[in-house]
Amino acid sequence: MPMMSYIDAVTTALREEMERDERVFILGEDVGKRGGVFRATAGLYEQFGEARVLDTPLTESAIVGVAIGAAAYGMRPVAEIQFADFIFPATNQIISEAAKLYYRSNGTWKCPLVIRAPYGGGVHGALYHSQSVEKIFAGVPGLQIVMPSTPYDVKGLLKSAIRSDNPILFFEHKRCYRLIKDEVPQEDYTIPIGKADLKREGSDVTVITYGLPVHLTLEAAKDLEKEGISTHVLDLRTLVPLDREAVVEAAVKTGKVLVIHEDNKTGGFGGEVVATIAEEALFDLDAPIQRLCGPDVPAMPYNPILEKEFMLNKDKIANAIRELAEF
C-alpha cells in the first residue's frame, strides 16, 4: 500500500469521486488553476476542466448558496471554504438553508452537499487562520460533521460524504495536511459516517478526541506506557452523528475519561461527549470526567509563545492523562 499524506488523500478522494460520478463538481476560491492554496485540488482543473473545478468570485455565501442550488437540482457539489475561519459569511446559507432544506420540504428536496474547510492551529495562522469552528454547527440538526484524523480515514470518509444525500461539513485539520502520512489502499473504499475508531486499547484512562489531538494523544500514550499507564484512545471521526455506543463503551472500559479537543472548552463538542457519558455510564466511572481543550480566549494569537500556549501538545495531554490515572 502506498504511503500518502493527509492532503493527498483529500485530492485522491476528490479525483476518484469525480471520475466515478459526473455530477460531482468542485467550487471555491483558488481551487481551479492554482489547485487550492493548500493544493488540495491540485491537478483536478487539468483533468476535469474549469467547469467542474470552478474558481468562484471571493464570496463564501455564494460558494455555499450556489452549491445548495446545484445540490437541490441533483448535482453533488463539493464546496471548499479556504479557511474554516472564513465560513461565517456562509453561515446563513449553511444553517438556514442546507440544514433545513430536506426537513422544511417534508423530505421532497434533498441537499447532497459537502463543504470542505481546513481548520485548526499550529501553523502560525494567527487569529483568523487557526480557528476550530465545529461547535458553531454541531448543535444544528440537519447537518453532519466529519473530522478525520488520518489519511486512510480522509479518503474513506470523504468518499462517503460525497455519496451521501445529506449536507456534510468536512473539516480537515490543516496541521495534519503534510505532517500525517499513512498507508492508504489504492482501491475504492468507504468508511461509514457516524462510526468512531478505537485507535489504541488500554486499561487505565480513556481519551476521547478527534483531529490532530488523536496523534498527540497516541504519542503521549506511548510515553506513558513506559510509566506503566495504559491509555485507551477513541477517535470520534464524526461528531454528528455521534457514535454514542462507542463513546459509552470506551468510557466504561477504564472508568476514567479525558475528552480532548482544540476548539474552546466552553460550548465545545466535548461537553456533548461528557453529557452522553454522564447520562449513560455515570455509575461506571471511577473519577470525574476531565476536559482538555483550547482555552476560552477569542482566538489563537500570532506570537509563537502565545500560539504554543493555546495549542495542545503531547506533554499537556500526558500530564492530563497522568493526573487522571493517579486519581
Binding site: 470552478l54 448558496g65 446545484a70
Partner: peptide, 9 residues
C-alpha cells in the same frame, strides 16, 4: 443564490 446554482447545474 440557489437560482444561480440551479442555473450553473
Amino acid at each position: 443564490l440557489h437560482a444561480v446554482g440551479i442555473a450553473y447545474a
